[in-house]
Design a protein around this nucleic acid. Structure first.
Lengths: 109, 109
DNA sequence: ATTTTGTATAACCATATAGTTATATGGTAA
DNA sequence: TTACCATATAACTATATGGTTATACAAAAT
């Protein structure tokens, strides 16, 4: 996963309400109206949080009659956790700095 | 790690510049002036990003003469990656919803 | 057909974020 | 001491974010 994408995913995750939604979805698929009393925010607010998670690919939605149920996309969440622990190699950037003499050398550390 | 804290850490991480900084710090401790040419943003902007990472505990700082070097706090980064993959149990919230009859039952799924 | 229920979108507001320039602070060197 | 270099902070700007209320849309029920 590239850094821009990872940052985007982390922004989708970096909110207590959305994290709790994901935590709840670990146990059970839920629809919008079930989340409203949990978080004590308006239905449109819940809807927007879920929409954000869906855009990031962290949840999937499926309509069941008049309800829209959301389910956790575990693999994607796994991928983010993994990507965080395997940040890309940036030695090229450092080599470039060295070539241009922009690395600081502290003697007698 | 509690959800509020996790969200805070993820906010600190959810920026491409800061992620790249951490990726670079995997290879080598760096001072502020070394990051400036890498990201092509102003020195105060770099300073603020590093300050944010430091507040989150993701980096440590140490002065070396006139330079302030930043180093990666690998354990903390590990902890975040792990916390993401082990979101807290929220079954109590679901039990509460059930007790109050707020869970939707879709028959004939 | 009309009403009701659940969800999504639009328009708006307050705050947070990421950048800028100007300036203050800390340490080194003349 | 004075000048210089690296870093941090202050003040500001533009945009993103998370909430609201009002409204539109979809499916179900009367």
């Amino acid at each position: 996963m590239d850094i821009e994408k990872l940052a985007e995913m982390l922004k989708a995750l970096a909110d207590p309400t959305r994290l709790k939604m994901l935590a709840i979805l670990q146990h059970r698929d839920c629809c919008v109206c079930e989340f409203v009393p949990v978080f004590k925010i308006s239905q449109p607010a819940v809807s927007k949080h879920l929409s954000r998670l869906k855009t990031a690919g962290l949840v999937k939605e499926s309509r069941k009659g008049q309800w829209v149920f959301y389910s956790l996309n575990r693999e994607v969440l796994e991928q983010v956790g993994l990507a965080l622990r395997q940040l890309p190699d940036m030695s090229d950037e450092l080599k470039e700095l060295e070539k241009q003499g922009l690395l600081v050398n502290v003697c007698c550390e």
